[in-house]
């Protein structure tokens, strides 16, 4: 029933993207997102689109899954496209009722949607190729530069790790409780809304109890191992930049400079 939820979206693998340092991946993603928003020459779109698809292929995550990550925002993308199609001024393309679609609207709508799609595809690429543990490690590393202004970097990262760690456990637990109650004749799938809501109680109560029990046990176990927060804590697997990371950093820098140069030299675009 809950079997088909992929855990945390992570797809284990050994591609170049999997091997990159998570900090590099977050930073590169950050710059690429800026690039997608700032540069609106067709050539920039072309380069960024090719880059995105290149990464998608290199990651070796099944294409269907990657394209599938657009699904939740499908309607928003479509809606955005229609708004632009009908609201831009310019040469009329066709009329529906009181609305006029324009040629300029079509072009602008297309590019806006392309932007949204690239954004989504790139961000999901990060979660597809980075295990949650590495992701939080990287986040802690990035946040710890803000420690001096009082950001509790380690604590935030710890909370995130624990939350992520327990998502699959709780899904499993829910699945088990649902099955147990189903065996006692509970029916969660049919009947009126009210009936179904009432039937959630037999799942929620045991689930909460077990979540609290787990939290309790975890706290106890952490205390028993003298957990005292991040002070003086070292890591078994430290994040280290490898040559690959410097290549990625360098390539991103070159790309940003090139796109900026194009934007300054040919503000109207040349395609």
């Amino acid at each position: 029933m809950l079997n088909n939820i992929t855990i945390g979206q992570y797809f284990p693998g050994n591609s170049v993207l999997h091997r990159l340092d998570p900090r590099t991946k977050i930073a590169v993603l950050f710059f690429l997102i800026i690039a997608i928003f700032v540069f609106d020459q067709p050539v920039a779109y072309l380069v960024l689109t090719l880059l995105t698809f290149g990464c998608m292929v290199v990651s070796r995550v099944p294409m269907k899954t990657q394209i599938g990550s657009l699904k939740p925002l499908w309607w928003i993308i479509l809606f955005t496209f229609l708004i632009h199609l009908f609201s831009a001024d310019g040469r009329p393309l066709f009329h529906i009722w009181i609305l006029t679609a324009t040629w300029e609207g079509l072009v602008r709508g297309f590019f806006i949607c392309l932007r949204l799609a690239l954004l989504l595809l790139l961000s999901s690429l990060l979660t597809f190729t980075t295990s949650p543990l590495k992701l939080t490690d990287a986040l802690e590393a990035i946040l710890s530069s803000l420690k001096s202004i009082g950001v509790p970097a380690h604590e935030l990262a710890m909370m995130m790790t624990i939350a992520l760690r327990f998502v699959p456990t709780l899904i499993e637990e829910t699945d088990k409780i649902m099955k147990a109650q189903q065996s006692r004749g509970a029916d969660f799938l049919t009947g009126s809304i009210l009936h179904r809501l009432k039937n959630v109680v037999p799942i929620l109560v045991p689930l909460f109890i077990s979540a609290f029990r787990r939290a309790d046990e975890l706290a106890m176990a952490m205390e028993a191992r003298c957990y005292r927060g991040g002070i003086g804590r070292t890591q078994m697997k430290e994040l280290r930049f490898a040559p690959l990371d410097y290549v990625a950093w360098g390539a991103t820098a070159v790309l940003m400079v090139a796109l900026t140069a194009v934007a300054i030299l040919f503000p109207k675009g040349f395609l």
């Binding site: 088990k176 147990a180 109890i209």
Partner: peptide
Amino acid sequence: VFQYAEHQLF
């Protein structure tokens, strides 16, 4: 009757 059946009481 599931394993740790007591966890289903509510």
